[in-house]
Design a protein around this nucleic acid. Structure first.
Lengths: 200, 200
DNA sequence: CGAGCGCTTGATTGAGTTCAAAAATCGTGG
DNA sequence: CCACGATTTTTGAACTCAATCAAGCGCTCG
């Protein structure tokens, strides 16, 4: 057990506010560890999602496949991110999108109950799920604005800012899918940038 | 008082599950009515948002203004919709976007406390705010996928489906802004559609 | 009745796609 | 550890959708 996922979870909470052992002991019971190999799915589109995940190591993504068979990536979830089809989880409805591992990953699974946190005494965070959802909305808004207003090059630069590590380790075609452009276009954008700013 | 906004709010809840008078009595205290004239703002971008709104009549929108001075509409909120900058509300941070009235509107304002619903006994909905946020995410996801995958014409057709009433009553330039295209382009899209399907 | 705003229409331009093929990289089995 | 096939990335050329620039039309409202 070289990388204990619960240690990563604890770190996540501590980064935000001190968390007494007792409270964390309760919290951790809501999670179950799992390792995912590359390309292994958490759930497919159309299935009812039974779990969301906290990513302790690696990277997951959520994505849809459109009528033309093209994949569109909604979210990347590298270390310390949450990922889930909340709608499917809470309403037991078929998931709109699939979630799979982009790399070998270690995650902590939680289920629908987590959002309500009935058992938890205070955990200071009946707000926890609210914060998670609010952050998710915030991130999606940023992305909407970029898609509405900025050309591919700017969106790519923003991506590098937002996910510096991912920009390195993910294959170009996944990044292109996230940005909403073709791999060919992204390749060209990179080419241009390499010439504009030789020191990068 | 021909249109009591609280009646609209009550209707909203009843549509989802029966709501005893006693519980609604508690709930309604979290809201304060307000009338907005066309173009009147709830808050500007950069201000700390103090309220979110339930729209009883009319239509609000949230939008950002980009570096080139162009407006981008994030959300329309016609009757029975909620609209707010949750991030700003809950974190007392400067709002990322502005909210104003597209038409003369009647709304019920709520503040940050609403999300926690401390005072409320059960209201069957400690889930209420969770549901609201989850629905918001769901809607934004749909829109992201459309922006990533579909050309302007398809996005417009989807808009008509999703907001049949708005497609009628909103000026074209607002719809264009929402769709992420220029008014000129939307005009042409409409022209094409009128010819393709003469019976519409 | 004129000024201004919103919508349309046209001509041109440009960012990004598509199709095609070559070059580079990766993974796997021998 | 190397070699080979498969997948990724790059590069090129033609094309397309939507943006931009520029008039012109019709309406409302002041």
């Amino acid at each position: 057990m070289k990388t204990d996922p619960y240690v990563a979870l604890r770190a996540y909470f501590e980064q935000r506010a001190p968390l007494p052992d007792a409270e964390f002991a309760v919290l951790r019971q809501l999670f179950r560890p799992r390792t995912l190999r590359r390309h292994e799915v958490l759930h497919a589109a159309g299935e009812v999602a039974r779990h969301g995940a906290f990513v302790a190591r690696g990277c997951l993504r959520s994505f849809v496949v459109d009528a033309q068979g093209k994949e569109h990536i909604l979210q990347f979830a590298p270390e310390q991110w949450w990922i889930a089809d909340q709608h499917s989880l809470t309403h037991h409805a078929p998931a709109l999108f699939a979630i799979d591992a982009v790399e070998e990953s270690e995650v902590l699974l939680y289920d629908a109950l987590f959002y309500h946190q009935k058992g938890l005494p205070t955990v200071r965070d009946s707000e926890l799920s609210l914060t998670m959802l609010t952050n998710r909305i915030y991130a999606m808004q940023q992305r909407l604005v970029l898609l509405l207003s900025a050309p591919a090059k700017v969106r790519y630069l923003d991506f590098i800012q937002t996910y510096p590590t991912l920009a390195q380790r993910l294959p170009l075609r996944l990044i292109a899918s996230y940005l909403g452009i073709t791999p060919e276009s992204l390749s060209r954008v990179r080419h241009e940038l390499a010439h504009e700013r030789p020191g990068a």
